[in-house]
Computed example of a mutant assay.
Amino acid sequence: MSTKRPMLRGLSSACLVCALCAMGGLPAYSQQNSTANPNRTAAAKPSASQEEARAILMKMAEFLGNATAFSVNLRSGYDAVQPSGQKIEFGELRTITVSRPDRLRVESERSDGTRTLAVFNGKDITVVDSVNKVYATEPQTGDVDATLVHFVRDLHLRFPLAMLLTTRLPTEFEDRVRQVDYVEKTNIEGVPTHHLAARTDTVDFQVWVADGNKPYPVRVVLTYKDAPGQPQFWTQLSNWDFAPKLTDDTFTVKIPDGAQKIAFAAEIPTMPSTARRPPSAKGATK
């Protein structure tokens, strides 16, 4: 017996919706007040290590927010908490290319083999599910920031760590990150990094920031402390390129032969899975 899920759910899972807020949240999508809770006990004066950690985090945010173009590969895993309480990890590979103000390309492959392509070319959004041989497209204007909000809020597509792609990243960090600690200086796959541990109201996160004049994130781990089972999402970011070779084809979509055009959020059949992935949660925030 088959089950159904929203079209192109491979763009992430409901567990990963939280990642939008964990690193800041999408501004027009999240309804939370970004100011501090007046009832919260006043924090102690930050230690020198906390001040250093916040400075590194903000340097990373400003560097990413000001980049005119970049590409990066992501290898990710996320927990799906089963009814028994057992955690099952699923994975995903992504290649993301951004050219500001209004170009975005995201290639994804889930651990079950589902492959998707999402492209924003400044005029239209097109998403292709090559395994199910379906695609959807609709007009979209504005910049990448506005398009990411539209992806999640209006089209109900899942986009983990979308905030890392927006120009508002420094502002969102300032508003939402309550505490940052410096853990250690370490090395990840040959890259010297600063290991930071931070907290928001709903999510704890760790980020390893490359040392030097290009402070990009090398690894991110998110813990959803208010969710049942406290599931985690992690991603390894590699092959950062801040001067990618872009052509007209980069943001052009070739529709596969025989692919059927459908509406966004249409239901398509999928094979059942013994281990349950996180359920769809259209329009939800954590």
Rank of each mutant, 00 (worst) to 15 (best):
V72F: 04
D143K: 08
D112M: 04
S84F: 07
T270F: 15
K87S: 11
I268Q: 15
M60N: 13
P244S: 09
T274C: 00
V220W: 06
G122K: 10
P279Y: 02
I96S: 04
R158E: 15
E62I: 09
L222Y: 14
W208V: 05
S238V: 13
G229T: 04
T193P: 00
Y78D: 03
D145A: 08
C15K: 04
Y216M: 09
S280T: 13
T223E: 12
S47H: 04
R277Q: 15
S238A: 14
L26H: 05
G113Q: 14
S13C: 09
E89R: 13
K245C: 01
S47C: 02
Q140V: 09
G65L: 06
S108D: 11
P6N: 13
V203Y: 07
E107L: 13
I96Y: 01
I255V: 12
D143C: 00
S13I: 03
E62A: 10
I88T: 09
K214Q: 14
N187P: 00
K261C: 01
P244C: 08
P139K: 03
W234Q: 14
V183P: 03
R54A: 06
S111V: 04
R277S: 06
N213T: 13
I268C: 02
R54H: 09
T171M: 12
P244G: 12
T270M: 09
I96N: 00
A210C: 02
G24S: 09
A284T: 15
S13M: 10
Y182F: 15
T186M: 03
V72C: 10
V207L: 02
Y78C: 02
V218F: 03
R178T: 08
L8F: 15
T274P: 01
T126D: 07
F233Q: 00
K225Y: 11
F173Y: 14
A28Y: 08
A36N: 14
V128D: 09
L246S: 06
K4V: 12
T285G: 09
T167E: 12
F70V: 06
R105P: 11
D204P: 04
E174Y: 05
E89N: 11
R153M: 04
T114H: 07
G142Y: 10
E267P: 01
G283R: 09
E138S: 10
N121S: 10
G24Q: 11
A281R: 12
E107M: 08
N66P: 02
A243N: 14
K185S: 13
K45F: 05
R115H: 08
S280H: 06
R153W: 01
F70E: 03
S2K: 07
H194N: 15
D102R: 13
L222V: 11
L64Q: 07
K225Q: 12
E174D: 15
P38G: 00
P272C: 06
N132Q: 12
R100I: 08
G85E: 13
Q206P: 02
A284P: 00
W208G: 06
V134K: 11
L246K: 09
Y182S: 00
T126I: 12
E62Q: 10
P231C: 03
T41Y: 02
K59N: 14
L196W: 11
V253C: 10
L8N: 09
D181T: 05
E189M: 06
A19S: 15
V131R: 05
R110T: 15
Q86F: 09
L8K: 02
K245H: 11
A14V: 05
